[in-house]
């Protein structure tokens, strides 16, 4: 009897203790709620109001009927897809090699991924402006080599936008992929080889499937980040490659009221949320472990 009461008291104590520990996370959750969740809900709310503050779906109608907004959505998807594909084509083989180097050499080479990862996006965008400009290094080289007579227009187009964005995205792929690849047990590869699989078959039928969790996490991160990317496309696209982020910024400045800007924002939110749900349900990504 006393033991039972004792146990009950202990259980209650433990519950209280856990509740108090839960309180430790509350300040962080409150800040995120106030500065991220509430603003996003506010955008949702404003997107269904007209200039007078009455309920309307007109903002979404503008979105669907104005050709400019539709072409922005198409451009956003096209650029994001291109960036994702190019980043994987560059990032996968690079990470594949890095993951097989001896640890000391790999640490040095990983700096080549960590350094750009930590460098300001503005600095990196500026670097590409300098490289691709009319008097930039690339044009100087092309003229010097006699490939062209006059400097080419390399900036303010899709190519420049994609190059600048790929430069930002490759580390986003390389970091989760590297962790996955390092954890692959090479005994499987030896087993495949000893059973007669050639190098190509060993790679595609053993190594590649084992690297898929990292690859899908990285690919997903790149695509979602690309959709909402703002600084690099605005600068390197120079107004000729308008993605949704830039369109939102322009809409805030040009339209009366915030309806169209917020409707575009809700579109971006929906795309992100759907992709996020897909990644967590179908691909079973543990995004908390992403860098």
């Amino acid at each position: 009897m006393t033991d039972d009461r004792n146990a009950a008291v202990h259980a209650r104590e433990a519950r209280h203790e856990r509740a108090r520990m839960l309180g430790l996370a509350l300040p962080a959750l409150a800040v995120i709620g106030a500065a991220v969740v509430v603003p996003i809900l506010w955008v949702l709310y404003l997107s269904v109001l007209d200039v007078q503050g009455h309920f309307t779906l007109g903002n979404y109608l503008v979105l669907a009927t104005e050709g400019a907004n539709l072409s922005v959505i198409v451009t956003t998807l096209k650029v994001s897809l291109l960036v994702t594909v190019v980043s994987v084509v560059i990032g996968y083989p690079l990470t594949y090699l890095l993951a097989q180097l001896p640890p000391s050499l790999a640490t040095i080479c990983m700096l080549g991924i960590l350094l750009p990862y930590m460098t300001s996006v503005l600095v990196r965008t500026y670097a590409w402006m300098v490289l691709l400009g009319r008097r930039g290094i690339v044009n100087t080289m092309l003229v010097w080599l006699g490939i062209t007579d006059a400097p080419l227009q390399l900036m303010f187009n899709t190519t420049a936008t994609v190059i600048g964005m790929v430069h930002v995205m490759v580390p986003l792929l390389a970091l989760p992929l590297y962790a996955t690849m390092r954890a692959i047990d090479h005994g499987f590869l030896r087993a495949a080889a000893s059973l007669g699989a050639g190098p190509v078959a060993t790679f595609w039928r053993v190594y590649f499937p084992l690297s898929l969790p990292g690859l899908s996490a990285g690919t997903f991160l790149i695509f979602v980040t690309s959709l909402g990317f703002f600084i690099t496309p605005t600068v390197l696209g120079g107004g000729r490659v308008t993605m949704i982020g830039q369109q939102i910024a322009t809409a805030i400045a040009t339209y009366d009221g915030f309806g169209v800007a917020t409707a575009l924002g809700v579109g971006l939110l929906a795309a992100t949320a759907i992709l996020l749900g897909f990644a967590m349900r179908v691909l079973r990504l543990d995004l908390m472990r992403a860098p």
């Binding site: 500065a35 509430v38 996003i40 980040t225 939102i248 805030i252 800007a261 992100t272």
Partner: peptide
């Protein structure tokens, strides 16, 4: 996980 642009206009508004 959320696009910075979205957080940006949300906070601004």
């Amino acid at each position: 996980m959320m696009p910075a642009v979205l957080i940006g206009i949300g906070l601004y508004l």
